[in-house]
Design a protein around this nucleic acid. Structure first.
Length: 609
DNA sequence: TTAGGGTTAG
């Protein structure tokens, strides 16, 4: 009677993740001398895994005099659950020829999925196919998940089609694969065919859409889910939908979702609070982000990092540094994302020594290998501070081939520092052998050639940009005024308030020309047309109409918040600085890559974008 | 004993 009793108690521990109770039960089992009973030992391994203690599971496994397939499957699963899938594969390899059963196959496939090692994954799949378990639907479900996680959605679909009895789990794995890879129609079609949907299926579709940048689609599915009255028993879907608000910079929707989070009682969940910090920061409301952070009772590295990155992006470098010191003194270890934020902050205020120090500390104190992004951030910092040779040396010494943002960082540094010769040398290389894909790189190239009077090359850069223009999205900006969002497209002249908007912008332009010596910088327009036409295009850039509308309609004294799909051009950047000074209003613009807080004639990006 | 959904950069 003792053994069934302990098995029952241990299963309760596994369900409730109570490690202390598991340890005390383990001690009693040892004292009673029944620890060698293999169902008990295997269940203990399993419980330790579920409670997140891989070391206990592994120790127990090592001490087993005999190991059956259940023991192997339990320890491999425990290692997967503790996020140690590398160890899963090495423990299996050390088995010296264990023939996997269906359970072991599942654990191995999951390990490959977690690690993203498709080479191993295909090997395991091959062995599975020729094994006596080759018809097992559970293993096939994990294979669907593995291929989906490794971006081989068609392979996932092939395995999915071979599953004889599909259940909600296998359907969900496939829906998740399609949604994450941006295959919207297939994801939706498959989702509609799921006979019994649960919260996992809805979450898979919604989060997949968010991850593939389809925030609006995610929202419409979420609304449908609410309409269907699906019980939100756990908060995972909420963190995804908060993320959708963040990516869309949809602050009104974001606040509503925040309200829902509170109403459902998930506001003390760390994951959700982290997502909310990020959402408020991305909606340019750093005060609200700080408020969420300060109310949290438990914070993890993502909580600290989200706020540090938010501050860095909004030009609050000193605050970001102070928060980092605070984080370290709280004993929280920074991760690779923390350092991206910190070095980014340094580059915006020109803290060269601090940036170099952080870059070194990352490797020395925290054993984090710098990624290409860390190098690009450091390169930005060096280039911006005029240390162009050091920046170029860094490009040659880094252990990665430089990508387009890296070259763009060096090029824009050359332009800013007036290093025409170096700029032309790099531009020549890019144009002849690199094949940039970002239109803004061609604008940069064209500007560099123009300042060196190399007109032939200017037109070559323009021609290449022209070739890709067909695919370019039309520019638009949105502005939120009194809980309503108004969208303006570039060149749009059909708005009901067009006369008021035109009048206000004309007034600003005249004042800027008279008092600030403003001359429109038409080098940002690369179409072939006369100067007057170019100035007209600049005048109707969507962010200007949006700002004018905001100034006409928003509550006096409140900041004007703009979200733009493309990057703000250099001329609009100058104009918005002037407008913020003339009107004494704060204008906050989130463009495709950066945040700009215009206030009193200055911008938080320090004219670096 | 095995399979599905979540947060920070870009």
């Amino acid at each position: 009677m003792l053994i069934p009793h302990y098995l029952h108690q241990l299963k309760l521990c596994a369900r409730n993740r109570t490690l202390t109770t598991a340890k005390s039960l383990h001690a009693q089992i040892v004292k009673l001398g029944i620890a060698q009973c293999s169902p008990l030992a295997n269940t203990l391994v399993n419980v330790y895994g579920k409670c997140g203690s891989a070391s206990h599971a592994l120790q127990l496994f090592d001490e087993m005099p005999q190991r059956d397939h259940i023991a192997w499957a339990s320890v491999l699963t425990a290692l997967n659950q503790a996020n140690l899938s590398g160890k899963t594969l090495s423990v299996f390899t050390s088995s010296n020829g264990l023939r996997p059963d269906d359970f072991v196959y599942s654990a191995l496939v999951k390990a490959c999925a977690n690690l993203g090692t498709i080479k191993h994954g295909k090997q395991v799949h091959g062995n599975f196919i020729v094994s006596e378990y080759s018809h097992d639907d559970v293993v096939k479900s994990s294979l669907v998940d593995m291929y989906a996680k490794c971006d081989l959605v068609d392979s996932a679909k092939a395995v999915f089609d071979s599953i004889r009895v599909k259940n909600t789990i296998s359907w969900t794995a496939m829906v998740s694969g399609f949604a994450k890879s941006g295959r919207k129609e297939e994801a939706l079609e498959l989702f509609r065919r799921i006979p019994v949907k649960n919260l996992y299926s809805w979450t898979a579709l919604i989060s997949g859409f968010v991850q593939s940048g389809k925030g609006l689609e995610a929202f419409s599915v979420f609304i449908e889910m609410r309409r269907e009255k699906v019980d939100i028993l756990d908060p995972l879907v909420l963190s995804s939908i908060v993320g959708a608000c963040a990516n869309l910079a949809a602050s009104i929707a974001g606040r509503q979702v925040h309200g829902l989070v509170i109403a459902l009682g998930f506001d003390s969940c760390v994951f959700i609070s982290n997502a909310l910090i990020d959402m408020y920061a991305k909606c340019s409301d750093v005060v609200a982000a700080k408020d969420i952070f300060s109310r949290m009772r438990h914070r993890d590295v993502v909580s600290w990092t989200s706020l540090i990155v938010g501050m860095a992006q909004h030009g609050q470098a000193e605050n970001a540094m102070a928060l980092y010191d605070d984080m370290v003194s709280h004993g929280v270890k920074p991760n690779e994302v923390t350092f991206v934020g910190l070095i980014y902050a340094c580059s915006h205020v020109g803290f060269v020594a601090k940036g170099r120090e952080l870059f070194q500390s990352m490797t020395k104190d925290y054993k984090i290998r710098p990624s290409l992004q860390h190098y690009t951030c450091l390169l930005d910092l060096l280039g911006r501070s005029g240390l162009l040779d050091e920046a170029e040396n860094l490009i040659h010494s880094m252990p990665f081939p430089p990508d387009e943002p890296t070259w763009a960082a060096l090029l824009s540094a050359c332009k800013r520092q007036g290093q025409g010769q170096m700029g032309v040398r790099i531009a020549d290389y890019l144009l002849s052998s690199f094949k940039p894909k970002d239109p803004s790189t061609y604008i940069l190239l064209s500007n560099i050639y123009a300042s060196a009077s190399l007109w032939g090359k200017v037109s070559e850069a323009r021609r290449k940009l022209g070739d890709m223009e067909v695919r370019k999205d039309p520019g638009y900006s949105s502005v939120e005024v009194r809980k309503e969002t108004e969208v303006f497209y570039a060149g749009e002249t059909s708005h009901p308030l067009k006369h008021e908007i035109f009048g206000l912008l004309k007034e600003f332009e005249e004042e800027m020309r008279r008092r600030k010596g403003y001359v429109p910088d038409t080098s940002w327009i690369l179409h072939d047309m006369d100067e007057q036409e170019k100035e007209k295009l600049l005048f109707w850039h969507s962010e200007r109409s949006a700002v004018a509308y905001g100034l006409l309609k928003a509550v006096q004294g409140t900041p004007i918040r703009i979200v733009k799909n493309l990057r703000v051009c250099g001329d609009c950047h100058v104009v918005l600085k002037h407008i913020s000074e003339i009107t004494e209003r704060e204008i906050i613009v989130r463009d495709a890559t950066r945040y700009h807080h215009f206030k009193g004639g200055k911008c938080s990006c320090n004219d670096f974008w």
